[in-house]
Simulated assay, not measured.
Amino acid sequence: MDVTAPPAAPGANDACRRVNQVLARMGDKWTVLAITSLAQKPRRFNELKRLIGGVSQQMLTRTLKALERDGMVTRQVYPTVPPQVEYGLTALGQSLSVPVMHLATWVLEHLDEIERHRDDHDRGRP
Rank of each mutant, 00 (worst) to 15 (best):
C16L: 12
C16W: 04
R17F: 04
R18G: 03
N20G: 15
Q21Y: 03
V22N: 04
V22K: 12
V22L: 12
A24F: 09
W30K: 06
T31R: 00
L33Y: 05
L33H: 02
L33R: 13
L33K: 03
A39V: 05
A39L: 05
Q40E: 12
K41G: 04
K41C: 04
R43S: 07
R44N: 06
F45N: 00
N46W: 04
E47T: 13
E47A: 12
E47G: 11
L48R: 11
R50Y: 09
R50T: 06
L51S: 13
I52P: 00
I52W: 02
G53H: 09
G54L: 09
L60A: 06
T61M: 13
R62D: 02
R62F: 04
T63N: 01
L64C: 06
L64V: 04
E68P: 00
R69K: 15
G71Y: 00
T74V: 06
R75C: 12
P82E: 06
P82K: 09
P83S: 03
V85M: 10
L89T: 02
A91R: 12
L92C: 07
S95E: 12
S95D: 08
L96C: 04
L96W: 01
P99W: 06
M101P: 01
H102C: 14
A104R: 02
W106R: 13
H110A: 08
D112A: 15
E113P: 01
R116E: 15
D119F: 09
D119V: 15
D119I: 14
H121R: 11
H121Q: 11
R123D: 13
R123M: 06
R123T: 05
